[in-house]
Amino acid sequence: MEYRLWFGKFVNDRFEKADDLRKSFSESCNSAPLPFSVSDIGKEIFGDDYYRILRRVAIEVAEEHVERELKREDRYVISLVRTLDEIANTANLLDERLRELKEIKNSQLVEMFEEKLIELKSLRGDIEKEIEDVMRKIAPNLSEIVGEKIGARLLEKAGSLEKLANYPSSTIQVIGAEKSLFKALSRIRKGKKAKVPKHGVIFQHPFIKTLPKKKRGKMARFMANKIAIAAKIDYFRGELDESLSEEVWRRYEQLSRS
């Protein structure tokens, strides 16, 4: 039996005090509830200083982790989104190859290939879940409004949370529709009639997709507005503001009824 406490561990009823408290604090993970209270043991060892030392170590560890976390997480999501795309593409190609192979010969190797391919596909689900978790953490407002998936996609196109937070809502509205936007712009420059896109990535959102065509532009504009605000809150403050998603919800109800 092993119990890991923040200041050391019990191995078969023998206690070993940790040399590096920060390390043991970060590793004090147990799969089941401890049968005793950590502080009872701790006070035997540290006496009245227990909480003072615990607090100091907790703050030091937290500072370090937060800093690391803030630097990395948006790049992590972006990289995951791209990985997801590439897996989807690759899986399709390999699928075709597998079908061809199967028609020719059903060898053991072909079976192995099939198994690996199934594994690769199930990895997609795992990556999607991870994207959702991280998005909730680094962009709670964005996730609340458009969902983690679309939020992650916006982030990927923008390049970083900082950039997304600095985009105007008009840009956010057409992220992912660059091709048709620039086509339209060049037509306008030549003095021809042009169709400017109403929505890019955010079209995927059910609130836009399910509206009749005429109203989609209105909804997309409104939503892009709120996304722009959400991205700014996420980047600068990081706290969830529930009123934003409620506004989007209300606007949708308004448009879908009228």
Partner: peptide, 9 residues
Amino acid sequence: SAKPFQKFL
């Protein structure tokens, strides 16, 4: 969540 935690810290 890292951002609010900074303030909390």
